[in-house]
């Protein structure tokens, strides 16, 4: 089980969190101008790196706030300095 450092509540069990996928996926500036393929790419295509990965987490059983964390997908280590509210 992961111990995830919530920026508000401190380290908590993984079971208290909801995963939000990749972080920093920007909403298209002009969605109407996108082709179907570009829109699908925005909606469904995500990075899948082995190593450092910035992702969104929600502390559902606690303060219910979203935050970003950088997790190493190979070791599951979460970088303490990279957890931002």
């Amino acid at each position: 089980m992961l111990l995830i450092p919530c920026p508000w509540c401190g380290p908590r069990d993984e079971a208290e969190f909801h995963y939000g996928g990749q972080a920093h996926v920007a909403y298209p500036e002009n969605p109407a101008a996108l082709s179907d393929e570009e829109w699908a790419r925005y909606l469904f295509f995500r990075d899948n790196p082995k190593g450092r990965f910035a992702e969104r987490w929600n502390h559902t059983a606690g303060c219910r706030r979203w935050f970003n964390a950088v997790r190493n997908t190979a070791t599951n280590e979460i970088e303490a300095g990279e957890v931002t509210a």
């Binding site: 509540c9 908590r12 069990d13 079971a15 208290e16 059983a61 606690g62 303060c63």
Partner: peptide, 10 residues
Amino acid sequence: CAQTMLARAQ
């Protein structure tokens, strides 16, 4: 105080 799980209940 804390919001957490007690016996799997929020």
